[in-house]
Nucleic acid binder design. Structure first.
Lengths: 346, 346
DNA sequence: GCGAAATATGACAGCGCTGTCACGCTCGTG
DNA sequence: CACGAGCGTGACAGCGCTGTCATATTTCGC
């Protein structure tokens, strides 16, 4: 019902509302003794600032928006957790919002989202963050944002970002397969409009080239970041005259599809075929065998991006920074079985 | 920058701000001709009401909170989608918020959450919704809420709810196993503080009793709604002198753990052992073999609950209503193999 | 110990909207 | 034609907070 307001605290503590406001917002110019008294009263009354009033009054709402367009539930939840951790710590609010990255009105939709709640800024995740036209518009609208994107190095294009080196991680995964002795390695690609997928393909190609192994078109299958495409893509690979002995799926869900395809075809993983994913989603731990993958700390990445955003909003200069997913070897990869021993069940 | 305000529209349309407000909020007493003109201006200027101002000014913020304490990412995302669908349709805002259902201060935490953003009400999901002490406090605080809970019928305790008949769905799953010819059926239970888990156990017991099969303690394993407990629980069942020929996991993640345990023990699913889950999460479709389960439309359930909440906030009387998850038979269940044919690999 | 500089505090307006209430206008009725 | 009922509209206050600016108080140098 009647929540406690600034005025209640002010009267009880014998100061003005503005002074309470200063204390609550950690402004400097308050005498320690006054601050102490106000703080005690705040505690005593259980005062919590009203976020709406704060947002309406100030130039922004001390709230950031997290924007995503992703089919992967685990990934979204991890991102939400990261953003929430940062916001709770920094006393910011958080608005989470799925959106359509391919809408023609993307930038305008985001602007409305920001204006309606006077958001302080946006954390943009892939693939929204790759939409340069939208980014330029957002910048023109004067909306602060930090983006997360897939890149080997700092893009230095003037927009703040946290970059994730998917190429390098994919390189590590494929190198791992090569070191096990695999030569024919299939690639199941993710969505075309995801830059990360291109980066992972680059890592795949680079690793092959580094080992002097030709890149074969027929081993690279297009698809989306979904189970069914992994399943179908793997089937196509198995049906080749000379099928691959290992498959790298561009995310765990694709790899899960490939795993199911292998098992449905009577192939034993990893003895008949090795399978690796990307992301370290719970799925990769919960399949059998568990998947070799690259650990992508989506929560940590988004947490850092959120902190950067808040710093930027507070007028501090921020440095871009990067993450490299880390190879996690599990039971789904092993050396290839010598050819004549390979068995076909069913 | 400067978003369009009510006043902008009012001036352009040659009416007062209040009239624009009336039109935007669909109040009746505006002449059709005036309404038309205002609507055109709104369209033309691309006016979107400022949610903060609306919330601060009115008695509530036209925004509902979705509260959850759940480890299951797919489940949360589905719930968020359902709530968002309802809110977008009803022109309400949505605040999504994980919480700790076992905190002693649960009700107070939720009250603060509501007050700080002047939320219009809360959608409470399990297990928060099962915390009667907290519910009573929320009611005492005057906070409207609708809860989602596991129950065979309308609890009629005066608090609005959408109830999900987990017992009945579990009964259907276990009956399916019994009809296939299974007699020894293991049960892997979910978290003790989840009422749904108790309901599912009840369905399990009822089905066995209906078929005249004794309920055996050693076939019922405690655990939480997580993969590892499914894995460990299934291992314990396999190690019994007379292991079950079928296992019912209280959710898909538990069932996934059981599936992995079976495969790691060299057991073929479903020939050596049948496994069923509950929930119809993507995982159940993406494992191999795909899991027999009960389809629980978390999105539809939460969407309905959200609509009920908004109706209640708008002062309409609302009827409680129920869902029954629906049996989905997939490849992980089959008739038991005659005993002497059962093989043990590895 | 005095004035200037620095620090601490408060008064006040206003963010954009909605609730309340009062006013004018159109009806229908006797 | 006068009157009240009812509809359509607008003026105004105020939600709880912060930004701005003015004022009160302390601090420091010489």
């Amino acid at each position: 019902m009647g929540a406690i307001t600034l005025d209640d605290v002010a009267i009880k503590a014998g100061v003005s509302a503005k002074t309470v406001s200063r204390v609550v917002n950690g402004e400097r110019s308050v005498r320690p003794q006054t601050r102490e008294r106000v703080l005690r009263t705040v505690e005593q009354l259980g005062y919590r600032p009203n976020l709406l009033a704060r947002g309406l009054s100030g130039s922004h709402a001390y709230t950031v928006g997290l924007v995503y367009d992703n089919p992967n539930a685990y990934y979204i939840i991890a991102m939400q957790q990261g953003a929430l951790a940062a916001c709770d710590d920094l006393h910011f609010g958080l608005q989470m919002r799925p959106c359509n990255a391919r809408a023609a009105t993307l930038a305008e939709d985001l602007r409305d989202f920001v204006h309606r709640s006077r958001l302080s800024g946006l954390v943009l995740t892939t693939p929204v963050s790759e939409h340069m036209v939208a980014l330029r518009k957002l910048a023109a609208f004067g909306i602060p944002f930090v983006r997360i994107l897939s890149a080997a190095r700092n893009p230095d294009d003037g927009y703040a970002c946290v970059f994730v080196d998917d190429r390098d991680a994919a390189y590590a995964i494929v190198s791992h397969l090569l070191q096990l002795g695999h030569v024919r390695i299939g690639l199941l690609q993710g969505g075309k409009h995801h830059h990360a997928s291109a980066e992972r393909r680059k890592g795949y190609k680079d690793a092959l080239q580094h080992y002097g192994i030709p890149v074969r078109k027929e081993l690279m299958i297009d698809g989306d970041y979904v189970f069914d495409d992994g399943f179908r893509g793997a089937r196509r690979l198995f049906d080749l005259a000379e099928p691959p002995t290992a498959i790298f799926g561009c995310n765990d869900e694709i790899a899960a599809g490939a795993l199911a395809a292998a098992q449905s075809a009577g192939l034993h993983v990893p003895y008949d075929v090795s399978i690796a994913g990307f992301e370290d989603s719970p799925f990769s731990r919960h399949s059998w065998p568990p998947l070799t993958t690259a650990r992508q700390r989506a929560d940590a990445i988004v947490e850092r991006a959120t902190r950067m955003l808040v710093a930027q909003i507070n007028g501090n200069t921020v440095e871009n920074s990067g993450f490299t997913p880390e190879l996690v070897v599990r039971g789904s990869t092993a050396p290839p079985r010598p050819k004549r021993q390979r068995r076909q069940r069913q």
